[in-house]
């Protein structure tokens, strides 16, 4: 039940993009087409699930026992960067088709603050291993959901006339604002 609450909360009520304002750069950058948005969402989900596992182990077995919590930021970002590289190499070898689909998004993930943000938050929330992985995966799914919805709307902007000064990022931000309001409705769920 507790796990179910974590899933619902992280996908809908505490959606990373709309409620926690994390991962905004890729959210604005890769939400022009539904196809690419879905690809990015899948890549982030993949990386976040693995990184949560690694980060949790690092925190519990290395940093915390030695009182090195203050090194968190440095260690986590390096681990995530290395992990993304590794995922890229492994995917290329094992599944070229998956690499074809996700490959171009992988380098962008290192600077997606949602990945590091989730790593830091799951430590702060003192989740256990299972909770951490569930939390990270569902947060990433929430990110993918936000990206795909946004892309669906932005595809429409291509065929309507938008005032010049509003084109591009401003209209995307205002749309995101309205979506965020809609997502606030989910806060009653938890």
């Amino acid at each position: 039940m507790e796990l179910f609450a974590i899933i619902i909360a992280s996908i809908f009520a505490n959606n990373v993009v709309f409620s926690q304002s994390l991962g905004i750069c890729p959210f604005l950058g890769v939400s022009n087409k539904v196809g690419t948005a879905a690809g990015m969402g899948a890549a982030v989900t993949f990386v976040m699930a693995i990184s949560s596992l690694v980060v949790w182990m690092l925190q519990s077995f290395i940093l915390a026992p030695h009182g090195l919590e203050y090194m968190q930021t440095l260690v986590f970002i390096l681990v995530i960067a290395a992990l993304v590289q590794m995922v890229e190499i492994v995917l290329k070898k094992i599944s070229p088709s998956l690499y074809q689909a996700l490959g171009i998004f992988l380098p962008l993930i290192t600077t997606n603050c949602a990945v590091l943000g989730v790593a830091l938050l799951l430590v702060q929330k003192e989740y256990n291993l299972l909770e951490s992985v569930i939390y990270a995966t569902s947060t990433a799914l929430g990110f993918a959901l936000a990206l795909v919805i946004m892309a669906g709307i932005r595809e429409r902007f291509e065929i309507v006339s938008v005032p010049k000064g509003v084109k591009g990022v401003p209209i995307a931000l205002i749309t995101a604002g309205i979506l965020a309001m809609a997502f606030m409705g989910f806060s009653g769920l938890v």
Binding site: F18, S19, Q20, S21, G165, V166, V169, P170, I171, A172, L173, I174, A176, G177, I178, A180, M181, M184
Partner: peptide
């Protein structure tokens, strides 16, 4: 709240461009 952040930033960006 977070929707307000999107709105304010979006409109400020329009003003800045103008």
């Amino acid at each position: 709240l977070s929707p307000g952040a999107f709105f304010v930033l979006g409109y400020l960006m329009i003003v800045f461009r103008k």
